[in-house]
Design a protein around this nucleic acid. Structure first.
Lengths: 348, 348
DNA sequence: CTGTTAGCGCTTTCAT
DNA sequence: ATGAAAGCGCTAACAG
């Protein structure tokens, strides 16, 4: 494996000149740089990452911290990760995956003290996240996918939940729906202050009111069974509802089943829109769901870019970005119509 | 940030003694090692990963090569990754995620030449994989999740497709089914020699024959629509079929819809079993599917362990492991029954 | 059992 | 515009 020394000799220059040529850290005559790069190519030279990192005190390695044990990683999380990995690569960084508990500051400190990484990207942040406190305390570069409570000077990227809900509601209104149900996460999750649950709930209230339509919120655990039960309860109490927005994709199969059991059809008798579900997931439904697909890969990408911006010392003026979800039309939403069958409390 | 030098002075020993104490590379008197570790603790010392790697020529960093553009990321892939990441951590290694094209040997070479990683784990290998040829050629440590054609001396781990199919068929037979349909991937995929498609097909043929039941194989693209069409075609031609095993989970929603359109019920009129689908995916169906869930996390873990074994110079005698899928009972399989409604070629 | 020292391959002053 | 040389923090001969 050729070293810089080999390149230097072959190009008839000193070792340091090669270094400067590679890093562009100081002017090199055109002739010299040509020779150097030629020598590099001939030798198939690649700078040694560890040596470079040790000498420059910049490893060009980032860590992506993602808690494993949380609420079960979904399909979207993989896209985050891939997005982050690709962004890192394009920016000339390596990405190491670091699975750890959300609140385990000890492990985080160990990771950082090893001097391996220049900065970290956090996923699944809590509203009051120990890790963020710690990183702020020691002034170690980081960025966040999601948001904690105190976002002052926090470099983060997150989904624009306001826009997401607005677009969903507008879509339904345009189809003629004026009575809209909303399935949030379970009440516990909401009350624990899980960001997305809270933000979407607030947005739904505000926007339905603003638009002058009738909105009914209900909480629902992340399971088909819960969806089945919750749907029936909701419709029994609010038979006027003709469209439902679901924040909680795991409950969708149950909802669909409940609809079917009433002898209803989607979207003829009721429209269904999923609120932050990836295309992949919604395509697994029959009929394929209309959804507001989250920009998962972009979020991962942006998380990395935010971090690299800091590391490369560029101005980080606007380091807070909200990304919109994108309306993907499936076959689960349609024009409001009079239902052929009267709703009945018990199916069949 | 304290260095080894600091520890040495505080413990009143030479720098090298600290090194030896940490690495256990040579005997240290109990008294001395006590002092050293005390000093380390007091200073909160952590060895510098880059320096250590540079000096020892072992970075303790692994790369997970993850081809992104292939056949769309599945839910299982994330579990692979997590499994691998956790295993690496437990073994004292870091894991960098390297997304790249399956056939891009150039990038792989660049990665390796940087000297950053001690070895690589490959995912999504092809039967004739350029990367494997390359790695074998330069004798660089690696392991494989999946299998290529020439497995001689190949350190790999993969799903035991034979066992998977056998268990599925037995499950169905025990429920009384004797006419079983099998949905493979698309014909092109099969003919291109995609390992899982080929292996499962062979296993299905052999096992149904061996068990003396009637098996019908069909190919099907990975979409709900394809599933819908393929199911109807299959049943029209083979109305005797009462159970179906699906290798291709993306077609399942279409199959379910087709069943429903005939006025049939799952599992009363027909049983459905999914062949290598994660629990997560099968739970999204209504009813939840019976599946043979792949040991995704274990595969990832094992891939890393296989690699680390080589790196740590342990005997790698049995470096080829097949892992079984696990039968997870859903509600999509049940006893064979006389169908109430006669099958009809065109639904409704 | 412990210390001394020469690198690992590169960056970066300090000179010229 | 280029070179020489001092480290970065650690490992691993070599010496005792």
């Amino acid at each position: 494996m050729p070293t810089m020394h080999d390149v230097a000799r072959r190009a008839n220059v000193s070792l340091s000149t090669v270094s400067y040529a590679i890093n562009g850290t100081r002017p090199i005559s055109e002739e010299t740089r040509r020779r150097i790069f030629a020598a590099m190519k001939e030798l198939g030279y690649q700078p040694h990452a560890l040596a470079r990192g040790l000498a420059s005190k910049r490893s060009r390695i980032l860590a992506l911290l993602f808690p494993t044990s949380e609420r079960g990683l979904g399909n979207t999380d993989l896209e985050f990760i891939i997005g982050a990995a690709e962004a890192a690569r394009e920016l000339g960084y390596h990405l190491v995956l670091w699975t750890s508990d959300v609140n385990d500051v000890v492990e985080l400190r160990q990771l950082i003290q090893q001097g391996l990484v220049d900065g970290v990207v956090l996923m699944e942040v809590h509203l009051h996240d120990k890790r963020i406190e710690y990183l702020r305390g020691i002034d170690f570069p980081f960025s966040v996918i999601g948001r904690c409570a105190d976002v002052a000077a926090l470099p983060y990227t997150d989904i624009d939940f306001e826009q997401t809900v607005r677009e969903a509601v507008i879509h339904l209104i345009q189809l003629g729906h004026t009575d809209i149900g909303f399935f949030n996460y379970a009440r516990e999750v909401f009350e624990a202050g899980y960001g997305p649950a809270v933000r979407v709930a607030q947005a739904f209230e505000r926007i339905t009111q603003e638009m002058g339509v009738h909105g009914v919120t209900c909480f629902c655990h992340a399971s088909a069974q819960a969806g089945y039960v919750a749907f029936n309860a909701l419709i029994d109490e609010h038979p006027e509802i003709t469209a439902i927005a679901v924040m909680n994709e795991r409950s969708v199969p149950g909802i669909l089943q409940a609809i079917d059991d009433r002898g209803w059809c989607v979207p003829e008798d009721i429209s269904l829109i999923s609120l932050v579900s990836s295309r992949q997931v919604t395509e697994m439904s029959m009929p394929p769901l209309t959804t507001l697909a989250p920009p998962a890969a972009e979020l991962g990408r942006l998380g990395v870019e935010l971090l690299v911006q800091q590391l490369d010392g560029r101005p980080v003026s606007i380091a807070q970005t909200l990304l919109p979800c994108q309306l993907v039309l499936g076959e689960s939403t349609g024009a409001r119509r009079q239902r052929l069958h009267e709703p009945s409390a018990s199916p069949q």
